[in-house]
Every structure is written in structure tokens, then in C-alpha cells.
Amino acid sequence: PEAADLRALSRHLYEAYLKNFPLTKAKARAILSGKAGDKAPFVIHDMKSLMEGEQFINCRQIPCQEHHQQQLAPALAPGLAGLTEAHCGSDGNISDELELRFFNSCQSRSVEAVREVTEFAKSIPGFIDLDLNDQVTLLKYGVIEILIIMMAPLMNKDGTLISYGQIFMTREFLKSLRKPFGQMMEPKFEFSVKFNTLELDDNDMTLFLAVIILSGDRPGLLNVKPIERLQETVLHSLELQLKISHPDSLQLFAKLLQKMTDLRQIVTDHVHFIQLLRKREVDMCLHPLLQEIMKDLY
């Protein structure tokens, strides 16, 4: 009966995952391997194709809007939605402006992604019964880790899917952007390529995300015990899930838990990059929600 309860929890969370994150790992991998049946993603590999990417998104904007109206949240990835709203001015360096606009579009997508993660967190049994301050703390500290984990299925060693899987942006192009833009994604690629060797499926990912959210060691938590109790149940469910989905993969559970340590370092570095950006880019505004999350984080 206990195993049955754990499987029921796994199914419940998987349903919430599908509801909130429709670009699943299965679909992203199908797109990346050319087996999705849809058109191949538009490839951005230089400034010219970045500008063409804006046109590409413009042409496809209507289906995207419908997507939102149906409350089917898109996958977690930096997007290009905001790119279409701004235009290059006649003055200044067009590449600089494009880079900043791309960064701003990533911000917009991140804000939407935070909302999706929040909805997913609320679906974890017992989460909404926690102290409201603790719910805020768990999200504040967990959400960037979740966003980074959810980027992994969209990435391979050569680049990443963005804009709901409609575009593939090359790793070399991202690396070529001016500092610190060009440095920001490289640690995520390095992490993702290693993480992807674990070959988790969407069911596994679901439970891992819930485990990360329910971390009882976040600074400032008021009532740790109920959080730890919830996490323990999800951990049992994850362990069982991995035994079923990867019977031959020894120590996968332990390997996965070790990734949580790497994640914290990536988040610390990411926040540092953002602080650097705010100093260097006078025209840059950080979205209030992202400001809230990153303020006094690490």
C-alpha cells in the first residue's frame, strides 16, 4: 500500500507538470533530434539570424498568443517574445541593442516561468498548507534552480531550444555575445550536458523538481519540520520511480541528489552575472519579480 501511495503521488505531480510545462522533455528531445514531425526549428547562429529570428517570431505570434490564452504554459526557456516589441534605433550600436533586447526577452520568459513553477509548487500536496512566509522562501531559493534544471532538456552540446522550441540558438553564438552576456549561458551548457547523461524522463524530472522546491535548508525558514516531512515522501516516490524507470542504472538516485550541490553554485554565479549586468548596462531594467527573487539571495 505504501508503494501504491508513492505511485499515486508521482502520477498527481506528473499531471501538474504536464499542465504547467507543456514543452516536455520528450517533445524537446524529439525536436532536437528532428523526429518531432513539425518544421525544424529556426536556427540563430549570428546577429543576422537573430534579427531574422524576430521576423520568424512575428510570423508565428498568433499561435503563441492562442497558446497563452489556453493557459497552456510553454516550456521553460529563454524566449524571444519581447524581441518583436522593440526596434533598433538609428543611433548607437545595433548589435548592443539587439543583445540587450534579447536579454530583456529572456527576462520576460523567466517571469512567465516563475509563474509556472509557482503553480507547480502549489500542486505539491501539503505545500499550500505550509507557513506562507516559508512558501515564499522555498520559491525564492528554489525557482532559479528549477529554471536551470528545466533548461537541460532543451539543450545539447551545440545549443539550446528557445521560444517554446521554435528556435534553436547555437552555443557558439551565445558565447560570442559581449561580456557578461556571453559568459552567462556557458555554465548552464556545461551542467546540462552532464545532467542529460542521466537520461531522466519527464516523470523523473517531475519528482526531482518537487524535491528541489521542498528543500528544508533554505535560509530563513520558520518551520522546517513539515517541509522535511513533505520532501521525505517525495524523495521516496523519486527513489521508487527511478527504480522502475531505470532498473539498470545503479546509484542514479544518489547521482541525482548530488546535482543539487552543483545547482546551488550555478545559481550563485548566475546572480553574480546579473549584478554585473546591472552595473554595466545602464539601459537595463531588471523585472520587479526577478529583483525580489535575487535580492539578498546569496
Binding site: 517571469v111 512567465e112 509563474r115 509557482t118 502549489k122 506562507l132 515564499v136 520559491l139 519579480l289
Partner: peptide, 21 residues
């Protein structure tokens, strides 16, 4: 904490749409 994280708090309490953000 809630005061310093008004939007997060709002997201937790309501079904905020992306437009509201």
C-alpha cells in the same frame, strides 16, 4: 518577508495571469 516579496506572495495567493506581472 511577505512585504519584501509582494509579487511572489501575490503569485502564491492568486492565479495571477502573465499580463498582470
Amino acid at each position: 518577508l511577505k512585504e519584501k516579496h509582494k509579487i511572489l506572495h501575490q503569485l502564491l495567493q492568486n492565479n495571477t495571469s502573465p499580463g498582470d506581472l
